[in-house]
Design a protein around this nucleic acid. Structure first.
Lengths: 198, 198
DNA sequence: TGATTATAATAACATAATGTTGAATTGTCA
DNA sequence: TGACAATTCAACATTATGTTATTATAATCA
């Protein structure tokens, strides 16, 4: 049914469709964007759309997955650097760089007119990767508390990023990173006590 | 164009349409719900829908607004109780009661299939009401820091609620409230220092 | 209460969007 | 180059959308 080939033309079509949606999202609400809108703008046949995606939601979700996959790769590249240190900066810093670099598509996905679960997926990403760090520092903490802490911290971090984003990166990256470390650490220590090891 | 009258028939129609959407959201994705789906289920004419809402998104947003309006009322009823105390429990507790009581519609709106900005709106609600408390305790804190703290805490709180919700309220309300107080307070103290007044 | 007025609900309609198909054409990659 | 795969194009049936006269119902008032 759906085409997922590696053909150069197919890649081009998928790229163009994503680009078209991304552009349109900056102009109008997702609910007002039709398949025809996207294909017309990119000068492609409407039928081509259905070779690759089932509907506009499917395309949007693929757009999200692209961004999240990139983000995960950035994290993986720096995973080793947070072992033994008491900060999330080594991971958080390149992640912010990525967001700034791709601010256009990120803005579309963050935007309140986008119809998706980008926030939920982003939360899972942060949760997944943050748990590792927390587990290492609080080895014997109650599992349940740790999970609530992680949910609090993961969503809280999204709040920080969104604020930074909405104020056009008005403060320096360093200041943001310092605040993130302090907020997360403060919350963690208050809930779980002093960490057992670094 | 759109009808917002107090007519008994109009009220009934709007109530039925919201109920229909709410029910359908528990069965399938928002993207698969058409105007016809909703009106057919409620045994009303499809045209009636357009007398009250422009499209399914409009209806969904109205459903959200209802819940958020209720939540704001709950908060307003208990606003006085947090003056001079070092806890959010007096407000947070009845809010959780409301969520439990209306868990069906809340589940639909929280759910990752819903296409909306419910999280964003909920964040604004918490932000608006929480700022007051923070401002009172840290009178001379830098404005910028306070804003980042509030974004962190507001989103973090959503994380707690969602975790609680997703685990079917698996822990007692008291435990959740205790954790919320500690997490928020820990983050705040770490970022802003000890509060100047209670 | 019964008549009057206002407006909500309905049915019918025209238009637009969707999703699919088959044939012709073009671009890829081995 | 040649086999293959993807795109295009046109056409189609189906479904969804949005509007408009008409009918039915609720609110108002004598």
């Amino acid at each position: 049914m759906l085409n997922h080939s590696d053909d150069r033309r197919a890649r081009r079509s998928r790229r163009l469709l994503k680009q078209g949606l991304s552009e349109l999202l900056r102009e109008k609400k997702f609910s007002d964007i039709s398949v025809r809108d996207i294909t017309d703008r990119m000068d492609m046949n409407r039928g081509t759309f259905y070779l690759h995606y089932t509907d506009t939601y499917d395309l949007l979700h693929n757009l999200e997955e692209d961004v999240l996959k990139d983000a995960q790769e950035v994290i993986d590249e720096h995973r080793e650097e947070i072992k033994g240190v008491n900060t999330l900066k080594p991971i958080f810093s390149p992640l912010l760089d990525y967001i700034v670099e791709h601010r256009n598509v990120c803005e579309s996905l963050f935007g309140n007119n986008a119809s998706s679960d980008f926030i939920g997926k982003l939360h899972q990403l942060i949760y997944r990767n943050g748990s590792e760090l927390i587990c290492r520092r609080w080895l014997n903490a109650p599992k349940e508390r740790m999970e609530y802490l992680m949910n609090f911290a993961a969503y809280g971090t999204i709040g920080l990023i969104r604020r930074w984003f909405d104020t056009n990166m008005g403060i320096s990256k360093k200041d943001l990173l310092d605040m993130a470390d302090r907020l997360i650490n403060g919350a963690a220590v208050q809930l779980l006590g002093e960490p057992q090891q670094l």
